[in-house]
Structures are given as structure tokens and as C-alpha cells.
Amino acid sequence: SIEEEIKKAEEAKEKGKTFIHGDFVATTEELLDELLKRLRKKL
């Protein structure tokens, strides 16, 4: 679910890890923020 993806992305951000969502690879905090923004729009 979208909620689960958001939670996983937030955890990755806290730990400074890379998060992959489909073909979107978030390797930096900026990219994770962008991904979180996109996911929240889908809610």
C-alpha cells in the first residue's frame, strides 16, 4: 500500500539508506523527500 511505502521511505531516510520504489531510486535525502511528496499525493 502507499502508506507502507511512505513508512519504508521515511525509515530509509532516517537511516541514510537508499530506497527503491519501482524505477525510482532515492539515494539522497532530496530524492527521498521528492518520492515522499509523490507518494503522499497519491493518498
Results as ranks from 00 to 15, higher is better:
I6W: 02
T18P: 12
L43R: 09
T18G: 11
E10Y: 07
K37S: 11
L32K: 00
E4A: 11
E30K: 11
K42W: 15
L43D: 00
K7R: 14
V25F: 12
I6P: 01
H21G: 05
L32W: 06
T27W: 14
F19H: 06
K42E: 11
T27E: 11
H21L: 12
E3T: 08
K8P: 01
E29I: 15
E5I: 15
L39K: 00
K7E: 06
F24R: 00
K13L: 10
G22R: 02
K13G: 03
A9P: 02
L35G: 00
T18S: 10
S1K: 09
K42Y: 13
K17V: 13
E34D: 05
H21P: 04
G16D: 04
K42V: 11
A12Y: 04
R40F: 09
A9F: 03
L39A: 00
A26R: 02
I2T: 04
A9C: 15
A12N: 02
I20D: 04
E11K: 05
T18W: 15
A12C: 15
K7Q: 11
K41D: 09
L36Y: 02
E5N: 08
E34W: 15
L39G: 00
G16H: 11
K17T: 13
E3A: 11
E5A: 15
E30Q: 09
T27H: 13
E5K: 08
E10I: 12
E29R: 14
A9G: 03
I6D: 02
F24S: 02
A9T: 03
L43H: 04
K8S: 06
G16W: 12
I6G: 03
E3S: 08
E11Y: 10
G22H: 07
F19V: 05
A12M: 04
G16F: 10
K8I: 04
I2H: 02
L36E: 00
T18C: 15
E34N: 05
L31R: 01
K13R: 12
L32T: 01
K37M: 13
L39E: 00
E30V: 07
E30M: 08
K7D: 02
G22W: 14
A26V: 07
L39R: 01
E4D: 12
A9V: 14
E4Q: 09
I2L: 13
T27I: 09
E11Q: 08
G22A: 06
K17D: 10
T28S: 09
T18N: 08
K41I: 10
D23I: 14
L43N: 02
T28A: 06
K41G: 06
K42N: 03
K15E: 06
T27S: 14
G16A: 02
E5P: 03
D33C: 15
I2G: 03
E34T: 07
T18I: 14
K17S: 10
K17P: 04
E3C: 15
E14M: 13
K37G: 05
F19A: 04
H21E: 04
K15W: 08
K37N: 10
L31G: 04
E29W: 15
L32I: 13
I2F: 05
I20G: 02
F24K: 00
K37Q: 12
K17G: 13
I20A: 08
L36S: 00
E4H: 08
D23A: 11
E3K: 10
R38T: 09
K7H: 08
F24D: 02
S1V: 07
K13H: 04
S1P: 07
K17H: 13
L43V: 02
E14V: 11
K17Q: 13
D33E: 12
L31W: 07
E11G: 03
L35I: 10
E4V: 06
T28W: 10
K7M: 10
A12D: 04
K15L: 13
I6M: 04
A12Q: 02
D33P: 00
R40P: 00
K15N: 12
K37C: 15
E10Q: 10
E5V: 15
I2E: 01
L36A: 01
H21N: 04
K13Q: 05
K37A: 13
E29S: 13
L43T: 01
L39N: 00
K8R: 13
L31M: 14
E14R: 14
K7T: 07
T18A: 12
E29K: 14
L32M: 04
D23Y: 12
H21I: 08
I20Y: 07
E30F: 09
R40S: 01
R38V: 12
K42S: 09
S1H: 09
E4I: 08
K8G: 06
L36P: 00
K7S: 06
K42L: 15
E34L: 13
L35P: 00
D33S: 08
R38Q: 11
E14Y: 12
K41Y: 07
V25A: 09
H21Q: 08
R40I: 04
A26T: 03
K15Q: 13
D23T: 12
K8M: 11
G22N: 07
K41S: 09
K15R: 10
I20P: 03
D33L: 11
T27V: 09
G16I: 08
A12L: 03
E5S: 12
L43E: 00
L36T: 00
E4M: 11
K13V: 04
K13S: 03
L35Y: 05
D33M: 10
I2N: 02
T27C: 14
K15D: 04
R40H: 02
K7Y: 06
G22K: 05
K37P: 00
G22L: 10
A12G: 01
L32D: 01
L39W: 06
D23K: 08
V25C: 15
I20F: 06
G16L: 11
K7G: 05
G16S: 07
K41Q: 13
K42G: 02
V25L: 09
E34Y: 13
E30R: 10
E10G: 03
E30S: 09
E14G: 10
A26G: 03
T27R: 06
E29L: 14
E29M: 14
G16N: 08
L39D: 00
R40L: 08
E14Q: 13
E10S: 05
K42H: 09
I20N: 04
K42D: 06
H21F: 14
K17N: 12
I6Y: 02
I2S: 05
